[in-house]
Amino acid sequence: MNVAPLIRSGDALIVLLGAGMVGGLGWHYWQGGLADKVVIRAGGKVFREVALSRDQDIAVPGPLGMSLIRVEKRRVRILADPSPRQYCVRQGWLQQVGEMALCLPNQVSIELTGQNKPYDSLNY
């Protein structure tokens, strides 16, 4: 089926505007910007806030033992954690504002923040 005669000029305009809107939404919601800082929480309390500018490893104590957090090349990940399912370790590197990893039941979490925090996921 030849679609060209079915599309009128205004239709093409609306489809293009729609595509622009989809692109704009994607850019707005999925490019939160690169993070500047990581907030490390243990047992619900802020343990440390660390700038991502310096590469380092941080050990955070939890009820099960130490969670190891690595900051490298402006990214951050949970390197090791004693929690059984290892979800937070498998999440891998985080670098966008608003991304977070939560280790349960060791009660250790990391959350990336930047200049403009899009929303507060922990305090909702």
């Binding site: 079915l6 599309i7 009128r8 000029s9 205004g10 239709d11 609306i14 489809v15 729609g18």
Partner: peptide, 13 residues
Amino acid sequence: LPARWFGPVSHSV
């Protein structure tokens, strides 16, 4: 909208 330029595709989108 004027039907000359805007058809079912516009309506649908």
